[in-house]
Design a protein around this nucleic acid. Structure first.
Lengths: 164, 164
DNA sequence: TCGGACCCTTACGTCAACGTCAGATCTGGC
DNA sequence: GCCAGATCTGACGTTGACGTAAGGGTCCGA
């Protein structure tokens, strides 16, 4: 599946000819620094299948592309903003990888119009599933905040002179 | 400070005469069930000073009031919604306890008007500090969501016929 | 070619937030 | 008074997400 080498949406390459012309690939140290995480974290993400460096040297050294870095930032975002664990994040990323693949298939001229509509609808489903959880979280937070604001207004009323 | 027995903002009582007329106090099992947490969690929260049952029997059994249950629910809310750890939650709860105390002092007739204004301003400060972190989180989530929505709209455009 | 910087795997350590188990204790109803 | 069931206090176990240290390989510029 997906035999075309090279573009695997920043997560699914395995190795690389040694003569690739190194377009801004970073060692694990620089990559970690740039993404604001530890080297250990990058290896750990790889171990869980969240992030595979776009290429590795013949000697086994990991080389990270800018796309890889972006993926790490995405992981952190999903962690801190949504509070997802790495398992749930894996699912989200799998969905996003699937969507990227769909987009490539979509633009392939051999894809029929009917297939295109099917793929597009699949994309929508995947996106909506994430949107639902995010929206739920946002609504809950909104409620929390408005509750807080109500209490703040109450306190301000006290300051302004209106009793209890 | 605050010699009137009973009302300690649901977190700061220690023991109780054995003849208290038991107004809906729950054992740890029932309390845990009602709050949707484990008994261990309740003991753990107490150990960290987050939650002290309003009374304990002479034999050392914990008795939880409805206010205690509400406090547990508050703890869970702060955990899941805001992603705070129990240490940060302790700070938030200390602030809220302080505000409750301020409210009591406020309504004491012996409190001068000037003192009242001072306390009210202190309340406002405490509330704003929490509000800031919540609002930051909300904004971040909002951004995440709108980004998601943009991508969904793009996909929907594809479905509707508009290319790329 | 060689040395220092960088990187590898393996494996054990850590921290928060509880889970779980054992053995003793308390409570309430009969 | 007595017993079943709820609860108590340790104390050790667990899980996720890494930290950290050891003992080696890799890479590349002088």
């Amino acid at each position: 599946m997906d035999a075309t080498p090279g573009r695997g949406s920043a997560g699914l390459a395995v190795s690389d000819g040694p003569s690739a012309e190194n377009g801004q690939l970073l060692g694990i140290g620089a990559a970690a620094a740039r993404a604001g995480v530890s080297e250990r974290a990058l290896r750990y993400y790889q171990q869980l299948g969240l992030l595979v460096p776009t290429c590795t040297t013949s000697g086994g050294l990991r080389r990270y592309s800018p796309d890889n870095i972006a993926r790490v930032e995405r992981i952190r975002e999903l962690q801190t903003l949504l509070g997802l664990n790495l398992d749930e994040i894996a699912t989200v990323l799998r969905n996003e990888d699937r969507m990227a693949q769909i987009r490539r298939t979509y633009h392939d001229e051999r894809t029929s119009d009917e297939e295109r509509r099917r793929l597009t609808r699949e994309c929508l489903t995947l996106q909506e599933s994430l949107r639902a959880t995010v929206e739920a979280k946002r609504a809950a937070l909104e409620g929390f905040l408005s509750d807080l604001d109500a209490r703040i207004r109450h306190t301000q009323d006290l300051l302004a002179g209106r009793d209890n």
